[in-house]
Amino acid sequence: MQNFDYHKPNSVDEAVANMQASDDGKFLAGGMTMLPTMKQGLAAPEDLIDLHGIDGIAGVAEGADAIEIGAMTSHSVVASSALIQSDLPALAALAESIGDRQVRARGTLGGSISNNDPAADYPAALVALGATVKTNTREIPAEDFFVEMFETALAEDEIVTSVSFPLVEKAAYAKFPNPASRYAMVGVFVAKNADGVRVAVTGAGPSVFRASAMESALDGDFSSSALDGVAVSADDLNSDIHASPEYRAHLVGVMAKRAVDACG
């Protein structure tokens, strides 16, 4: 690991200014991916801009038909928030399934979605719930936010400040963890509201995606049996030593059914 200039700005504007002044800067949120990467020597930013000192970008707030969660809110806070547990329990349960207890204490919502790891859990929730990502400059619908593997719509000097999750009638997340890393090997988030059903899949493909055939099937009949015979193609799914694309495709179907069942 190499030394860097450590910045701990007090405001979003100051953080942005720190980034703009750097040739090679990185924002540091929970650091659960960034620090291990730096330890391995796979990244060596010149400036590390720690967002922990910024007021007002952490915490859970009730909005109009939505819950707004600050970007620097840790997974453990999301998991244990009484508000989220009562109004959007699927999201609290998802947060509780991330990493391990120590990772949840440090890792943040904003950090996770800005990284857009293809096996991260949150992207499925954002896409299925139709969340809006708020940054220091704009609001981005979740589906436009996640571009592809490790890529988001964020500019280099743009900071996620919060995510607004609309409340839905029913939602649930079913995750099949990678046995070693506990990242999602397949994670399916199902959300149902008046407009219809959205099914978002993480871990299985190069980036989060919506399973539209499943959505159509569930629009007609919101029950797990409606998904019988609705297969996801293995063609573009990930392949690694833990699971073949075929198995991942199969698991998407299983997890989707389990999520629907969990919606009650």
Binding site: Q40, G41, P118, N178, P206, N238, D240
Partner: peptide, 17 residues
Amino acid sequence: GKIAQIGSRLVGGAAKK
């Protein structure tokens, strides 16, 4: 090297990308 040793879950996807 290191990318093969610790990043195997991502190597396939990264190469494809």
